[in-house]
Simulated scan of single mutants.
Amino acid sequence: MENQFNDFHLTRGMDVAVKIFPCEEYASWKNESQIFADANLKHDSILQFLTAEERHSGLQKEYWLITAYHSQGNLKDYLSRNVLSWRDLQKMAGSLVSGVAHLHSDYTASGSPKIPIAHRDIKSTNILIKNEQECVLCDFGIALRLDPSLTAEDFANSGQVGTARYMAPEVLESRVNLEDLESFKQMDVYSMALVLWEIASRCDVIGEVKSYELPFGSKVRKQPCMEVMRDIVLHGRGRPEIPSNWLAHQGMRFLCDTITECWDHDPEARLTAHCVAERFNLITQIDLLSNSENPPWVR
């Protein structure tokens, strides 16, 4: 699905959002509720969960998820309206990577053990923007707890899911290694790389900033099917273009190298989300240590 949020009625109060699932989407509501119920999921880059409720609307049952509300909307819409500075990019991309790294981690920031989670549908419409121009991950309807006690059969029964545009090559080819829990994280890292490309494409340090478009936007229709994406990503080894002018900026070149390593065709060659988070920390540290109003890669 290109935008899962559009499948549900979304309303809001002054500071909360209510995501309403119809009865036929009960399984998605239940899964998302269970994911959110894990106290160890709490993180600045994960949508704040308040409660889940079953409601009756006439003769119909509805299922509610009540979360924090973010007035800036989702990342896709935000990028279509705004051009980013290098500092904006660092905050947005860094917070996104931090959230994915937390999902994938075996431990919380305080060192408590946690069950890693694979999001399985990372895309710019499943990321919200906080007022601080930071990203928060949302929509965990098809997320998967990577519990070591589960078997390969359990994971196989979870199905091949996600959004075709953002699917990793191994998902498109149905060759995911279900014996290795890292496989699910590697899929997320590929999808995350496409979103990082979207963010980079709207940063003013690259020179002329073109109108926003989704990954592969010029090559496919609005909601491409898996067959089309197989031709581009799997058989053609295609990826979104990284123009040469992006590489003229030192920080952007470092980011583009990271993106390229994250969408590698070989899942095992991809960086982990934790490694990408460390790279963003390095960029920030270099900027801070520069002791200048205009560090080497800040325009």
Rank of each mutant, 00 (worst) to 15 (best):
P224I: 06
E261C: 05
Y190I: 00
E182G: 12
Y212F: 14
R230S: 12
V209S: 03
L255W: 03
V189L: 01
I259T: 00
M226S: 13
P240I: 09
G217L: 07
G238C: 13
C225Q: 15
I259Q: 04
V228Q: 15
L234F: 05
H235K: 14
I206T: 03
C256Y: 03
L247D: 08
D188T: 04
F254W: 01
R202K: 01
L234N: 07
E227I: 13
C256E: 00
D188K: 07
H265M: 09
I232Y: 15
K222Y: 08
T258K: 03
C203A: 09
E208T: 15
S183M: 06
R202L: 07
L196R: 04
E182M: 12
V176A: 01
F216H: 07
H249N: 13
F184S: 03
R237Y: 14
S174W: 10
Q186E: 15
C262N: 10
V205R: 02
L255K: 00
C256F: 02
V189W: 10
R253I: 05
G238W: 09
H249P: 01
I232H: 14
W197K: 09
V189M: 14
E227D: 14
E241N: 13
H265L: 13
E261S: 12
N177H: 03
W246F: 14
D231F: 12
F216C: 04
R221S: 13
D204Y: 10
V220R: 06
G207T: 00
P243K: 08
D188Y: 07
R175K: 11
R239G: 06
S191K: 06
P215E: 05
P267H: 04
L214I: 06
I232T: 07
E268V: 13
L181P: 11
K210A: 11
V205G: 08
K210N: 15
P267T: 11
